[in-house]
Computed example of a mutant assay.
Amino acid sequence: MKASKFSDAQKAFILKQGADGVPVADICRRAGISQATYFNWKKKYEGLAPLEMRRLKQLEDENTKLRKLVADLSLDREILQDVIRRKI
């Protein structure tokens, strides 16, 4: 996945403008983002401070690594079980 060119503080500022009543179209035009991006950020980060946003990303990255590790271990287990069955 491509890294965002916006920092967590910039995302928080953009979302705060929306919460303050600035029209979404104006916010997106000034920031150079699509409305879809704005609403994706809003869904994911609304109400979070930049430090909380950073922590959320760290937890998501850790979760992704753990999921891959579990998938690899599950595959290894299946392969070992197939080898054991063939020897019996």
Rank of each mutant, 00 (worst) to 15 (best):
C28T: 14
C28P: 04
R29I: 02
R29N: 04
R30K: 14
R30T: 07
A31G: 00
A31F: 12
G32V: 04
A36R: 06
A36E: 15
A36C: 05
A36D: 14
T37I: 05
Y38L: 11
Y38I: 04
Y38F: 15
Y38A: 08
F39V: 05
F39G: 07
F39M: 01
N40T: 13
W41T: 02
W41G: 01
W41A: 09
W41F: 00
W41H: 09
W41R: 08
K42G: 00
K43W: 07
K43N: 04
K43M: 07
K43G: 09
K44I: 03
K44W: 01
K44Q: 06
K44G: 03
Y45V: 03
E46H: 08
E46N: 05
G47W: 02
L48R: 01
L48A: 02
L48P: 04
A49Y: 08
A49R: 15
A49I: 04
A49F: 01
P50V: 10
P50Y: 12
P50M: 06
L51H: 10
E52G: 12
E52W: 03
E52F: 01
M53Q: 09
M53Y: 02
R54K: 14
R55W: 06
R55H: 11
R55K: 10
R55C: 02
R55Y: 10
L56S: 09
L56H: 04
L56V: 05
K57A: 15
K57I: 14
K57Y: 10
K57C: 13
L59W: 05
L59V: 10
E60G: 03
E60Y: 01
D61Y: 13
E62Y: 01
E62T: 10
N63C: 11
T64F: 13
K65D: 13
K65A: 14
R67L: 13
K68I: 03
K68Q: 15
K68A: 08
L69N: 14
V70K: 05
V70A: 13
A71W: 00
D72H: 14
L73Q: 13
L73K: 14
S74T: 15
S74D: 15
D76R: 12
D76V: 05
D76W: 10
R77M: 10
R77I: 12
R77S: 07
E78Q: 14
E78I: 08
I79Q: 14
L80Y: 08
Q81L: 07
Q81S: 07
D82E: 12
D82G: 07
D82Q: 13
D82C: 04
V83D: 12
R85S: 05
R85W: 03
